[in-house]
Computed example of a mutant assay.
Amino acid sequence: MSFEEEWANARAAATTETSMRLNAVDDGSGNRGLGRGLKVTSSVLNDRAEKAEIVREDFLKADNAALTEHLKLAPA
């Protein structure tokens, strides 16, 4: 089997499996989520945005610290 054939089969299988999973989500009560919509309020979005900003700031601090240490080790 060529790479192209194997890749096409893998993509087809992944697409089928994903759509089947999404169409068959069970919340544990036997209800598969049919007929219910996702309700997201602005306060939920604002809360998530604030948390994302905290993570971004922490990542930048860690990145800056790592870069500073790396530059100390680099030959002059």
Results as ranks from 00 to 15, higher is better:
49 A>N: 02
72 K>Q: 01
22 L>W: 01
2 S>L: 02
54 I>E: 13
56 R>T: 07
31 N>F: 09
56 R>A: 13
2 S>G: 09
16 T>F: 05
20 M>H: 13
67 L>G: 05
39 K>E: 15
18 T>S: 05
72 K>D: 07
73 L>P: 03
52 A>R: 06
14 A>Y: 08
26 D>E: 15
25 V>W: 09
51 K>P: 00
25 V>L: 15
10 A>L: 15
27 D>E: 14
38 L>W: 08
13 A>N: 11
34 L>Q: 14
46 N>I: 01
5 E>K: 13
76 A>H: 12
18 T>C: 00
56 R>N: 05
36 R>L: 11
5 E>C: 02
49 A>E: 06
53 E>D: 05
69 E>C: 03
46 N>C: 06
39 K>N: 14
70 H>M: 10
8 A>Q: 14
54 I>V: 15
22 L>A: 00
73 L>K: 13
52 A>L: 09
75 P>T: 02
23 N>S: 15
55 V>M: 09
68 T>F: 08
54 I>Q: 12
2 S>C: 04
18 T>R: 11
47 D>L: 10
76 A>C: 07
16 T>S: 08
9 N>S: 09
48 R>G: 05
75 P>D: 11
27 D>H: 06
41 T>H: 09
13 A>C: 04
28 G>P: 00
40 V>F: 07
12 A>M: 08
74 A>I: 06
22 L>D: 00
16 T>P: 10
33 G>P: 01
69 E>V: 03
55 V>A: 15
45 L>T: 04
54 I>Y: 04
70 H>L: 13
8 A>F: 07
71 L>M: 10
39 K>W: 04
50 E>L: 09
21 R>W: 10
17 E>T: 11
41 T>Y: 09
8 A>L: 11
24 A>K: 12
48 R>F: 00
65 A>E: 13
47 D>F: 11
33 G>D: 06
66 A>I: 00
27 D>Q: 09
42 S>F: 00
6 E>F: 07
13 A>I: 05
69 E>Y: 02
67 L>S: 13
62 A>W: 05
55 V>C: 08
59 F>T: 12
70 H>V: 00
31 N>P: 02
25 V>Q: 15
42 S>A: 06
28 G>N: 08
75 P>E: 12
6 E>R: 15
14 A>D: 06
60 L>A: 04
23 N>R: 13
76 A>L: 14
30 G>H: 08
20 M>Q: 13
26 D>Y: 08
52 A>W: 08
68 T>Q: 06
24 A>I: 03
6 E>V: 11
73 L>R: 12
19 S>P: 02
54 I>M: 10
55 V>N: 00
58 D>H: 03
7 W>H: 13
54 I>F: 01
62 A>V: 03
70 H>C: 06
6 E>H: 10
30 G>Q: 05
8 A>Y: 01
15 T>C: 00
62 A>L: 09
6 E>L: 14
74 A>G: 02
11 R>M: 12
21 R>N: 14
7 W>V: 10
75 P>R: 12
42 S>H: 07
18 T>L: 14
47 D>M: 06
62 A>P: 04
10 A>H: 10
26 D>A: 12
4 E>P: 05
61 K>Y: 01
